[in-house]
Simulated assay, not measured.
Amino acid sequence: MSTSAAEALSASLSSALRDLRSFSFNLNSPVAFVVPIVVILLRVAYVQAKHIHETRSAKKRNMSYTVKWGRERLHFPLPAPDAKLAEIRHEIATYTQLDPQSFKLVHAGAVMKDDNAPISAYGIKPNSSIAVVGGGDVPAAHKRHKPKEKPAERTEASTVAQIRGELDVVRRTLKPDVESFLTTLDPSSVPSSTASAPAPQPASAPVTDSNAAQLGGRNTDIELEHRRLGELLLQSLLRLDAITAEGEWEEARKERKGAVKEVQTLLDRLDGGFRARPRTAAR
Rank of each mutant, 00 (worst) to 15 (best):
S2G: 11
E7V: 05
L13R: 09
S14Y: 05
S15L: 12
D19E: 11
R21D: 01
R21T: 01
S22R: 00
S24E: 06
F25A: 09
L27N: 07
P30C: 06
V34A: 03
V44C: 09
V47F: 12
A49R: 02
R61C: 01
Y65V: 01
K68I: 09
R71W: 12
R73M: 11
L85Q: 10
I92N: 02
Y95N: 14
Q97D: 14
Q101C: 02
L105N: 05
V106D: 04
A110G: 09
V111T: 12
K113P: 06
P118N: 06
I119L: 09
I119K: 08
S120N: 04
I130T: 02
G136A: 00
V138T: 00
K143E: 12
K146T: 13
K146M: 15
K146S: 13
K148G: 05
P151V: 09
E153H: 14
T155C: 13
T155I: 11
V160N: 08
Q162M: 14
R164W: 13
R164Y: 13
R164G: 11
E166N: 15
V170I: 12
R172D: 11
E179K: 11
L182H: 04
S188T: 08
S189Q: 00
S189C: 00
S189I: 03
S189V: 00
T194R: 06
A195Y: 14
S196A: 02
Q201K: 13
A205R: 01
D209F: 10
G217R: 11
D221R: 05
E223C: 04
L224C: 09
L224Q: 08
E225T: 03
R227Y: 07
G230A: 01
L232F: 03
L234A: 12
L237G: 04
A242F: 04
T244C: 12
T244E: 14
G247W: 08
E248T: 12
E250K: 15
G258M: 12
V263M: 07
Q264C: 09
L266H: 09
L266K: 11
L267F: 07
R269I: 07
L270P: 03
L270N: 01
R275V: 02
R277G: 07
P278S: 01
T280G: 07
A281R: 06
